[in-house]
Nucleic acid binder design. Structure first.
Lengths: 266, 266
DNA sequence: TAGTGGTCTAGACCACTTT
DNA sequence: AAGTGGTCTAGACCACTAC
């Protein structure tokens, strides 16, 4: 067997680990059609040679792609490209804009308002601040192909932001990602979110914003986003039209709960 | 620093990896209160000594616990026990029974019926069989503390089961986990599930089963469960009372999408 | 028997946090 | 400077799947 072994070993920088670089290369190869859905990827040992990295790096990269649903690995058989990659996957924390875009629709904002208001009980609890603490409050109607699909409220503690920037939020929130704004302007990097999902009946106010009948069924996503240090940064309440998207969740397990072991921590 | 270093190195068996054994030990130590919420776990290097395994095993075990939400790891600081562990976590694929039990309620079945019927379009698509293929069809009303909370339909291709076992399903489905039955009786091990979550309005039939008004808002979970070989085994349609449980999802990211790298796959 | 992914070791160096 | 978790290496052996 011959292979084009490349040894373009990258320099590890603070922003790119070898694993991330390897993952990106494999993903790109798949997306460009070098490995088609259903096809088998080179063996891990091959990838080690091709990428010039250790097997640990290759395996970590493949694990990322597997978590994402892009590939599957089968013991003794090989690694294969998945037939249909799963989108709208709630296991990943993308914003509404990105979600609409990935559905091949045009994202937009029909209305955006930002102000500073005292935290209600729910908001205060979610953000772990005292009730009535001032929070940046953003109300938005998001559209896909000009049609309203999501009505949302976002809350950010003012203390995390500093003053006088409410307008920046209003301006930014019209087109873009809050995540990006929080990172770029305030150095707040969201690491993960915890979402509650529940079915609701549209109140007259919400119904009006989304152009549906009062009492229509909607999906409500209540989400708190945290930094790596587990500090709550952003609380969101989103009302989704049920027809607009398919929300999908990959559920691992059931877990093989380990029985008696003989290793001991004390 | 002194530590009770135990070197009870377990034998790796086909059912228990070292990683699983280590994970179980650490989890047990936490659950028994040895490490309380907010407290710091021993450093990875300490755990290596205490458990008598390599750092790889320790890290893999900690990763499992982190995915589960039991601990958090902070670069440069340490590993800590989470304050409140997250239950009803939709990232994991437990059955309704287990879910009710973990909410400290008494699980039960108000009604269970099993029969063989031809697959409808939806069922056939989900299970990747031809339309009208015979499938085991199970209808159930699940109760928590005697109160109906979930109305569900489960579908399993008959070819996976062999004949004449419909009654086993009826009998078993009254108390227990389909997952367990599938594994114990037919060797079908579920590795993961893909769920669609959507809000619905209760039809008159469903409303009657759950003792709610017609048109009430319900959460519908449409889930397909797969084996390790990505073969669909079980398709479920569950209608949940919105008040009964809080469904929670941990969402990773937003991802730091890697920019240009210099590793090449070809 | 050969090839695959899964597990595991022992050790190194790096980046982040605290003292 | 010391301690932590994060990344990476090189190599070994195991378990599963095919031929």
């Amino acid at each position: 067997m011959k292979h084009n072994v490349k040894t373009l070993k990258p320099v590890r920088t603070s922003t790119h680990t070898l694993t991330e670089a390897a993952e990106h290369e494999i993903r790109t190869a798949i997306e460009q059609g070098l490995y088609r859905p259903g096809a088998q990827l080179p063996a891990e040992s091959e990838l080690v040679l091709m990428l010039g990295v250790s097997r640990t790096v290759v395996r970590d990269a493949l694990r990322l792609l597997e978590d994402e649903g892009l590939i599957t690995r089968r013991h003794g058989k090989g690694t294969f490209v998945r037939s249909g990659s799963i989108l709208q996957n709630l296991n990943f924390n993308f914003g509404t804009t990105e979600m609409i875009r990935s559905a091949n629709m045009l994202p937009g904002t029909a209305r955006a308002a930002a102000q500073i208001a005292p935290a209600t009980q729910d908001v205060a609890t979610a953000l772990n601040v005292a009730i009535d603490t001032p929070v940046i409050t953003i109300e938005r109607i998001r559209t896909a192909d000009q049609k309203p699909v999501v009505y949302s409220w976002d809350y950010i503690p003012q203390t995390l932001i500093g003053d006088a920037d409410v307008d920046a939020f209003k301006k930014n929130s019209e087109d873009g990602s809050l995540y990006h704004l929080l990172k770029a302007s305030f150095g707040l990097v969201i690491e993960y979110g915890v979402a509650r999902v529940l079915p609701v009946s549209a109140s007259s106010h919400v119904a009006q914003q989304l152009h549906v009948a009062e009492g229509s069924v909607l999906l409500c996503l209540l989400q708190t986003d945290y930094t790596a240090g587990d500090e709550p940064v952003l609380y969101s309440c989103e009302y989704h039209l049920p027809d607009a998207f398919d929300f999908i969740i990959m559920r691992k397990g059931p877990r093989k709960m380990g029985g008696g072991s003989s290793v001991s921590v004390e």
